[in-house]
Design a protein around this nucleic acid. Structure first.
Lengths: 346, 346
DNA sequence: CGCTTCGATCGCAGCGCTACGAAATCTGCT
DNA sequence: AGCAGATTTCGTAGCGCTGCGATCGAAGCG
């Protein structure tokens, strides 16, 4: 039997469609579409009429349909290890601020430092035909790399500089951060060091900071620092515990660097509990310049990463690419540097 | 002239389509689609064949096309005031964990406490035909309300209980939080109170906590607390400054509550700088139970909101709704409560 | 051995929008 | 007035997928 004869009620996505707007405004759908995308190319009179109808009908365009027709959606996929972390939260926030005026939305995923989850998330991300994919770090699993390379979406790798990026990397050198911390402590006359890190197994960047710290000690002819880590996420509690561990050794540690200001704050608390004077008895350098770092007791010397700048820069680059800019011929690398903020804890 | 005669190269979204998979697997596209959505309804033999082809071809389904055809996408829009805030970051994180197994992605927006921005974000959010819209608070602009009411998407309002939700609210009572803080301080023998808040103009929930604090004082027949606020976001620096302001008055304040543990931490630092003993000279109660609260000096008495629980619960409800559950007949309200965590600062 | 029953597979008709190029309309100029 | 050129508007053909009902085929049964 001819299917055409049977009744078919089709599901509908939303109340008002562009065609209805067009009818009410007495123009063609094309014109409505054009007006919505490039208002300048429609005559002011017609534009005003369309605007009025859109408002009256409460028309909300479907980005899903638009994305399908235009072969690419107005979403930017961001995949980070965790958002429960001021670093990435700041970057994401800056990125979103930069993207919002262009009508780009963030699709968020978090890997919890798990490569398998990263691959799943990248797959889902690509399913949205995003305007760009943003992910943290330069190290990815085989499958993730394949997906990314085969996709035509611009890929931005952030928070790290170094090896070869897939497309464009925007970040800074973590080894150099570690080295800077050590040189600073050495300048302050310290000689026996420890590095306190969290999640060092999974967080390659924290590891790089520790390595830079150790390498700079070696370069300066100083004793190899004690490197302490733990599988948990950064916290003041962990900072305190690792400091206790560091101080329990035979060597009298007089300078520490932490992979995160939260850890450094925990170290300060531990010093307070033990009556160790900071910086007199122990100099402390953190990483992150978090909300409390300038006003804790004593104010914390720290290294400020360009978190917001990364977000802003990536936002800018995405819009540039969307506007037709070519990807860099050779994979690009943008080093945004970092800043040592000396305060009273060292 | 007949347009059919002119050449047209159409833009394509991605390399491999479902039709190509179908061809290679020698089945119809419908079967591939069915297999991908409900593998159980396809015979094991055919399923295996399709799986093999999908893998070999590196097929990534288009959620954009799928969303259009199915009249609803697999995205959940989350609109929060800011993600640079442990409260919302935790909730979002829990929500995403709960949604991930169902293949639902988060679309993130942040309003920065600006109603106009909220409306814009809700509009964009609805453009995606999301499976659900999640937003913070029960108070929204007229336009936002209209958009939400006209849309057919389930709406979850989180982090607040009280007034009438649009669809379902999942949160707790902030006034009760303030009251609990005051009663706790009163039990500890305090009589002269101050409440230190950030962004009190914009953040209705912080305001409610302050109101509950004041109301409980009145109910207990105690002097009205000093309510201090500032337009900036919560920080240790602000906590310290507002405490200084509170202590500069003629009344000798002996108990404070803060709208955020970060503020409370700042107050602790200020006490340390001024040599005020805590809790001897001043009892401090925070809100949030953040990462450092248990291990600062002294450990901070605080009120723990159900941040993760909210995320998990909303995730569960969304999936229930997606599976066909009806929206609550009368707008629903789920009170997840909160917990006073007494520690040594009070 | 024909007929029902049920599970597996298929074909069709869009979902709502945009890109493309053509058509219509408007300008300014001779 | 007539025409080239610029500007504005329109018509068409999908984008890739899913929901629906139809169809096919194997098993079950009297």
């Amino acid at each position: 039997m001819d299917q055409r004869l049977t009744t078919r009620r089709r599901r509908r996505m939303q109340r008002v469609t562009m065609a209805e707007v067009a009818r009410a405004a007495e123009v063609s759908p094309s014109t409505v579409s054009l007006y919505l995308r490039k208002p300048g190319q429609v005559s002011p009179a017609v534009g005003a009429r369309i605007a009025r109808v859109v408002d009256a009908l409460g028309y909300v365009p479907s980005l899903v349909a638009g994305g399908l027709a235009a072969a690419g959606s107005r979403a930017v996929s961001v995949i980070v290890p965790t958002i429960q972390n001021d670093f990435f939260a700041n970057t994401i926030s800056a990125l979103q601020q930069s993207l919002e005026p262009a009508g780009l939305q963030l699709l968020l995923g978090n890997t919890d430092y798990d490569p398998a989850r990263e691959e799943r998330l990248v797959r889902t991300a690509l399913s949205w035909a995003p305007a760009a994919v943003v992910l943290v770090g330069l190290e990815h699993g085989r499958g993730t790399m394949r997906l990314l390379l085969e996709s035509s979406a611009p890929v931005f790798e952030i928070w790290e500089c170094g090896g070869g990026p897939i497309d464009t990397a925007v970040g800074f050198h973590h080894r150099e951060v570690g080295a800077t911390a050590l040189r600073h402590l050495a300048e302050r006359g310290r000689r026996h060091f420890a590095f306190l890190g969290a999640r060092m197994e999974e967080d390659r960047r924290a590891r790089q900071r520790a390595e830079g710290f150790a390498a700079a000690a070696a370069a300066a002819g100083l004793a190899a620092p004690l490197i302490l880590g733990a599988p948990e996420r950064a916290s003041t509690e962990l900072g305190g515990r690792l400091l206790a561990e560091a101080l329990s050794g035979r060597t009298r540690i007089d300078g520490i660097a932490c992979s995160n200001d939260l850890m450094a704050l925990g170290a300060l608390f531990e010093c307070q509990r033990r009556g160790i004077e900071v910086p007199g008895g122990l100099a402390v350098v953190g990483f992150g310049d978090l909300g409390f770092s300038a006003s804790c007791v004593p104010p914390l010397t720290t290294i400020r990463p360009p978190g917001e700048a990364i977000g802003r820069e990536v936002g800018r680059l995405i819009q540039e690419r969307l506007a037709g800019a070519e990807p860099p011929a050779r994979a690009g690398m943008i080093d945004l540097g970092f800043e040592l903020v000396p305060r009273r804890s060292s």
